[in-house]
Computed example of a mutant assay.
Amino acid sequence: MTALDDIDRKILRALFADATQSSATLGTQLGISQPMAWRRIRRLQDAGILAGKRLELDLPALGFGVRVFLGVKLAARGRVDLESFERAITAIPEVQTVEHVLGLYDYRLRVVARDIADFERVLRRRILTLPGVGNVEANVLLSEERRPGPI
C-alpha cells in the first residue's frame, strides 16, 4: 500500500471534483510547483490509486428518468455458470453495474430505463429470460443524496 500524505489527499480531492485539471492548475491551487504536481499524479497512477478518468453523464437529461437497483438470486446456484451469467448480463446496455454480492441475493444490478414501462420491458424481455435467473427484487431509486467520493 502506498503511503499518502496531505498533498496526495488534496490532489485526489481536487481531481475527483474535476479530473480534467492540468498539473499546472493543480499546482497553483495547492501551492506546489507544476512539476511536483505532475510527479505526484504520476506516482498515484503508477501505484494504481488513480485508475483512470470517468465521464459522468446526466441520465435524466439523456432521457433515462428511472434508475432501479435489482437484486438477482440465481435459481440453481451450483448448476449455473457464473461467468456465462455475468457475460450475458453485462451485454445488456441498460444494466450499468453488476456486483456479485454475499447475502440474500447473488447479484446486485443498477439498471437505467426511460420510464417504468421501459424498465418492465428490460426486465421481462432481457433480464428474466437469462438462464439461471431465479428470484428478483427491484428497488426504484427516488433520489440520490450523496455520490461516492474520496475517502
Rank of each mutant, 00 (worst) to 15 (best):
P131A: 12
W38F: 15
G52M: 07
S33V: 04
H100W: 14
A47G: 05
A61P: 02
I41K: 01
L141C: 15
G71L: 05
K53E: 07
G132M: 15
V66R: 14
E137P: 04
G78D: 03
F64C: 07
A91L: 07
V98K: 11
R39W: 02
P35G: 02
R146P: 02
K10Y: 01
A113R: 01
D118Y: 07
A76W: 11
A88V: 07
S33A: 11
K73A: 10
R67Q: 14
Q29V: 10
P148V: 04
A24P: 04
Q21M: 13
V95I: 09
V140E: 11
R39K: 11
R13D: 08
L12V: 07
D8S: 00
L104V: 10
R126Q: 15
G149R: 08
T20Q: 11
A37W: 01
L50G: 03
A117M: 03
L59M: 13
Q29N: 06
P148T: 06
R43N: 11
G71I: 02
M1V: 05
D46I: 01
L62H: 11
D81C: 10
R121Q: 09
L59D: 10
Q29I: 12
L123H: 14
T129D: 08
G103F: 02
I7V: 13
I127Q: 04
R42F: 10
V95N: 08
R147W: 05
